[in-house]
Write a protein that binds this DNA or RNA. Structure first.
Length: 607
RNA sequence: GGGGCUGUAGCUCAGUUGGAUAGAGCGACGGUUUCCUAAACCGUAGGUCGUGGGUUCAAGUCCCGCCAGCCCCGCCA
């Protein structure tokens, strides 16, 4: 109801100018009336929107809130645009004005939704600031997932990957050009030992293509790490290997590529299963810009040499000992660290093409533990003037994944859980649930149906459980809860869609149009109002970057639909109710499908 | 020591930026199936919003203090 609320807002502003002429407003009155005075109703029984400003004005203009509310309400009814879309305002409680949209307007919105693929969600209007290519700049970079080369993806990558993907989908839908960047850990000291180990174990890999399948990279990493910890000679070889690599030695680069490619294949398997698209651009990409970062900071007099390291001291950053806390940009041995790389990345991402990405909004989806790191890095970028005024850069933090014991999620033996295993277990459990149900209901389905359903349900459950929680807090991982058939879970939402598909199979034409919809039941009106809220929810997620708001909405929509389905006959209803109700089913299905797709979750016809 | 996040029903969590009697789900208890998938629906019980102050017509929400838990803090990312 974004367009309706905009119209009401305009009508309200016209009204407020009449009731409180601008020239007569005290500064306090003006500040109260500045900004939006129309808010969504706090409860359904209060209507669709409410106006609260009578309460805040009472003291200032020395009139009772209800008297003020009456003046506003009376004046609203003189506004032609207002009376077209809204029922007469009601004054309630101490001085609230409750507004409810009239049924004619609601029905015409329903007609509009039936033919609108975007379901009322407007394309975002971007600032007219141009990119280097001369287009209006709508480019956003979302930095998410970011596993480390030669290590397996584990639960730690789950939230970043799932939340980042959903945010990318939402922003794309809103009209952004989204660059999804996978900032993989493909550079650093660990490559010394990996390459040394590789050269010794499978030397032929360097000169012959595809002779090595490092099928278990983790194992490979472990062995290299073990040797590094135990063997002094290996250690020194590894250290010089890092130097070789950074100096661009041919063999070292080949070995490095080999490791990266192998990891890439492993990562891709997971991304394919999760249906997540990412552009890989690892840390190594920024190597050639690191020196420029140091030079630029030097020129701007921001660097301080402290014990041989190039540092920046930010105001207010204090260390354990109470002394100012530096951020190290260049180590005393001349090497760079992650702060340097992140700074180079910010610079590159904001620089217009062809020397950078030219994005105007940067989003980093990483765990909350990195909050202070990003705070520091963003501050430095600001000090160095790398962030143009129209650009925004934000860290989107999320909490830990915990087990049902409230502790960090681990296997029984205390090891990190592999992401593959997590997906497999969810699917396998979904499969078992499905088979039990088929047996109980004496249904018979073929293997491919069972595969498809359990796969979809399992992945959906994992994604939805993560997304449905406010990302800031820690999240308690539980297979039982996420796969449960009741409550705010993926299976519950999927089931609502399956019910609608069932209606369609049993002869309900969901594409039939009609121009005399008729709704008589309260369940219908509740559903209509919920459906029409979709657009403002998407707008909210775009702004707040909180996918759980969308999940909460979809769950409530499913609940309201289930109630409607349970209490109001559809196929057996007489016309025009039958067609009217089928239309509601149709838009509910479209809304659920679109909403789920913004979460990165596919849907089913039967389950 | 400094900083961040969290604290809401037995459990897991919402709470749309200060609005009306604080909401869901699970679990518990009770009910509903000649009818579109009952994987559903309806009802009951359950609260000093960690705590103490403050701001105001109005505070779970804003400010200050305190308590508890988790996380981060010099050459790892």
């Amino acid at each position: 109801m974004i367009n309706i609320s905009a119209k009401l807002e305009e009508a309200l502003n016209r009204t407020l100018i009449k009731v409180f002429p601008k020239e007569n407003r005290s500064s306090k009155t003006a500040s109260i009336l500045k900004g939006s005075n129309l808010v969504p109703a706090s409860k359904p029984e209060f209507g669709d929107f409410q106006i609260n400003c009578a309460l805040s004005l009472a003291k200032e203009i020395k009139q009772s809130p209800r008297v003020i509310a009456k003046q506003i309400a009376d004046q609203l009814q003189n506004d032609n645009e207002f009376i077209k879309i809204c029922n007469p305002p009601l004054i309630a409680g101490p001085g609230f004005i409750n507004l409810s949209i009239n049924s004619k307007t609601l029905i015409s919105e329903i007609h509009f939704r039936l033919n609108d693929k975007r379901l009322g969600v407007p394309l975002k209007q971007f600032s007219r600031k141009k990119t280097g290519e001369g287009k209006i700049n709508n480019r956003v970079i979302i930095d998410f997932s970011s596993p480390n080369i030669a290590k397996e993806m584990h639960v730690g990558h789950l939230r970043s990957t799932i939340i980042g993907d959903s945010l990318a989908r939402v922003l794309e839908f809103c009209g952004y050009e989204v660059l999804r960047l996978n900032h993989v850990g493909d550079w650093g000291t660990q490559f010394g030992m990996l390459i040394t180990h590789l050269k010794e174990v499978v030397p032929e890999a360097l000169h012959t293509k595809d002779v090595v399948e490092i099928s278990d990279l983790v194992n490979f990493y472990r062995k290299a790490k073990k040797r590094f910890d135990e063997d002094k000679t290996f250690q020194s070889k590894s250290r010089s290997e890092v130097v070789n690599l950074q100096a661009g030695d041919q063999d070292s680069l080949i070995a490095w590529q080999l490791l990266c490619n192998q990891s890439r294949k492993e990562f891709q398997k997971i991304y394919d299963r999760l249906d997540i698209k990412l552009t890989e651009r690892g840390e190594s990409f920024y190597n050639k810009f690191l020196v420029d970062v140091i030079n630029d900071l030097k020129i701007k007099n921001l660097l301080i040499n402290d014990q041989g390291a190039q540092c920046i001291f930010l105001n207010g950053l204090v260390g354990k000992d109470g002394k100012p806390q530096p951020i190290i940009i260049q180590k005393s041995d001349g090497g760079f660290n992650y702060a340097t790389t992140d700074l180079a990345a910010i610079k590159y991402r904001l620089t217009p093409p062809p020397h950078g990405d030219g994005a105007f909004r940067l989003i980093y989806v990483t765990d909350a533990g990195q909050a202070s790191h990003f705070y520091g890095v963003f501050q430095i970028a600001k000090l160095a003037n790398w962030i143009p005024a129209h650009c925004q850069i934000e860290h989107v933090p999320f909490g830990l994944v915990q087990g049902e014991d409230g502790k960090k999620l681990k296997t029984r033996s205390g090891e990190t859980i592999k992401l593959v295993d997590l997906l497999d277990e969810a699917i396998q459990r979904a499969r078992k649930d499905l088979k039990d149900r088929l047996k109980n209901e004496s249904r018979c389905e073929n293997e491919s149906f069972i595969d498809q359903v359990s796969n979809t349900v399992g992945i959906a459950a994992i994604k939805y459980a993560d997304l449905s929680q406010n990302r800031v807090s820690n999240y308690q991982f539980s297979f039982d809860k996420m796969l449960s058939l009741q409550g705010n879970t993926a299976p519950y939402l999927l089931y609502a869609l399956v019910r609608i598909a069932g209606i369609s199979r049993k002869g309900g034409d969901l594409n039939k149009s009609c121009n005399n919809f008729q709704f008589n039941e309260p369940q219908e009106w509740i559903l209509i109002r919920k459906i029409l809220h979709f657009d403002s929810i998407v707008a909210e997620v775009e702004k707040e970057l909180l996918p759980n708001r969308l999940c909460g909405y979809l769950f409530e929509l499913s609940q309201i639909f289930n109630r409607f389905y349970d209490q109001v006959p559809i196929l057996k209803a007489s016309e025009p109710s039958r067609t009217s109700r089928l239309a509601l089913c149709s838009i509910t299905a479209d809304t659920l499908k679109l909403g789920m797709s913004l979460l990165g979750i596919p849907t089913l016809e039967r389950m």
